[in-house]
């Protein structure tokens, strides 16, 4: 188990999330794909915080990677709440949550 395994897995998860964001049409599905991308980033951060990299071999253990992950999870929770409120509003006003049909700002 090496750092590169976690890096490759995080990259694969991020690309899957990107595909979901680009290809899905339901707004809730897009939100779930965004969650997968956030988790890929979290995994990468924790992996870098956990493995001993050569310059830091003897230093004190650094908790900053994990602290940043705590903040990312907090922001993700706030983002999900707001996004679902917006989706519900959209559904009430337009009767659809298909992101292709939402073009109110189109010039």
């Amino acid at each position: 188990m090496m750092l590169i395994h976690f890096q490759l897995l995080a990259a694969a998860l991020f690309c899957l999330g990107l595909y979901g964001v680009l290809a899905r049409r339901s707004a809730v599905m897009v939100l779930m794909a965004v969650e997968i991308m956030l988790n890929a980033v979290n995994l990468n951060l924790v992996a870098y915080a956990s493995f001993r990299l050569p310059p830091l071999m003897d230093g004190a253990p650094l908790a900053q990677g994990q602290v940043i992950v705590v903040f990312v999870i907090t922001i993700a929770a706030a983002e999900v709440a707001l996004a679902l409120a917006m989706i519900m509003r959209l559904y009430r006003n337009r009767g659809s949550i298909n992101v292709d049909e939402i073009n109110l700002l189109k010039g």
Binding site: M1, M2, L3, I4, Q7, L8, A11, A12, F14, C15, L16, L18, Y19, L22, A23, A49, S50, F51, R52, L53, P54, P61, L62, A63, Q66
Partner: peptide, 28 residues
């Protein structure tokens, strides 16, 4: 699909090229 696969190829190339070989974990 093409965009995400291309991004994965780019990221994987960078990761493999910059492999640090770190395999020691430490807990916090």
């Amino acid at each position: 699909a093409i965009a995400s696969i291309a991004l994965f190829a780019l990221l994987a190339t960078a990761i493999v090229a910059d492999d640090t070989g770190a395999d020691q974990r430490r807990g916090v």
